[in-house]
């Protein structure tokens, strides 16, 4: 209140409807206000998605960490999007989020609401590519205070092929055949490049030299892909402390979502 009346002089002299400039030195010497509150944290964990001819697999470990602590051994990073009610009955889209878990939850809730509202307003299910673009817009809308997450969205497209989209925290996105994200991404992604996209693999029978043809990636079979995912995670668990406890896989086909859980090392 004192600051309110300070520029109304008691001597009855003209004064002004805004505060007069303070004496310069005292203002300049004051240290800037420090904000010690940092609104983000990293909850570790890793996710991975691979799309095939008629299916998409999204997987994630279930460990949640803060620093060297294990918060819990079961906190899913995979979420069904759309479908009926809070149980997502009949849903055919899966979102995985890794990074800051609280933002991940908020993002999942927003996308889920959008997909449900779409069906309510248009009377048909939202396609995966529409959902993918909407997710990009949601992330971009918060560009200046981003959702600190790496998202992967999976489903089956209108031709029945597996669809997989990966995102950065501010909404840049791309449709891909495989993508790893999170703490173990740097361990898993090179393995996927080699095993899914057959990078650095050449025709063994061909003669040595520059003409040696590279192997062409073939559509993956579901059983083989599941084993690939399991191998990727068991290896990441060995070398990264924030990955482990359990592996949750969701396999999306035209018939719906199948969920598979398998244990990982808990050390």
């Amino acid at each position: 209140m004192a600051a309110f009346t300070s520029y109304v002089s008691s001597a009855g002299q003209p004064s002004y409807s805004f505060p007069q400039q303070q004496s310069a030195p005292s203002h300049a010497s004051r240290a800037p206000i420090q904000h010690s509150f940092y609104p983000y944290t990293d909850n570790g964990g890793s996710t991975l998605g691979i799309s095939g001819d008629n299916f998409t697999i999204i997987a994630g470990d279930t460990r949640s960490t803060s620093g060297y602590n294990i918060n819990t051994r079961y906190e899913p990073k995979l979420f069904r999007i759309g479908g009926e009610g809070s149980e997502h009955k009949g849903s055919k889209i899966v979102l995985s989020v890794v990074g800051f878990a609280a933002d991940g939850h908020a993002l999942k809730e927003r996308l889920d609401t959008v997909v449900k509202m779409y069906r309510y307003q248009h009377g048909k299910e939202m396609s995966v590519n529409a959902c993918a673009q909407r997710l990009s817009h949601i992330l971009y809308n918060k560009r200046f205070f981003p959702y600190y997450v790496q998202a992967i969205l999976g489903g089956v497209d209108e031709e029945g092929r597996g669809a997989l989209y990966s995102y950065d925290p501010v909404g840049s996105y791309e449709r891909e055949f495989c993508r790893a994200a999170g703490a173990g991404a740097s361990l898993i992604m090179p393995f996927l490049d080699n095993q899914v996209n057959l990078k650095n693999q050449y025709e063994p029978a061909a003669p040595q030299g520059l003409e040696k043809p590279q192997l062409v990636p073939q559509p993956l079979q579901r059983a083989a892909t599941e084993e690939l995912v399991r191998d990727a995670f068991t290896s990441a668990v060995e070398r990264h402390i924030e990955v482990g406890d359990g592996l949750q896989m969701m396999i999306i086909t035209k018939d719906g979502i199948e969920e598979v859980f398998s244990p990982l090392k808990m050390d």
């Binding site: 051994r73 079961y74 479908g83 809070s86 149980e87 997502h88 009955k89 009949g90 849903s91 399991r230 359990g246 949750q248 018939d255 719906g256 979502i257 199948e258 969920e259 598979v260 859980f261 398998s262 244990p263």
Partner: peptide, 22 residues
């Protein structure tokens, strides 16, 4: 607890898998 899981979400019959902890 929520009502039983949706019909489309079935567990894989693989021997390596176990049921969800929760």
């Amino acid at each position: 607890p929520p009502p039983p899981a949706p019909s489309t979400s079935t567990s894989s019959p693989k021997d390596t898998t176990t049921s969800k902890p929760t």
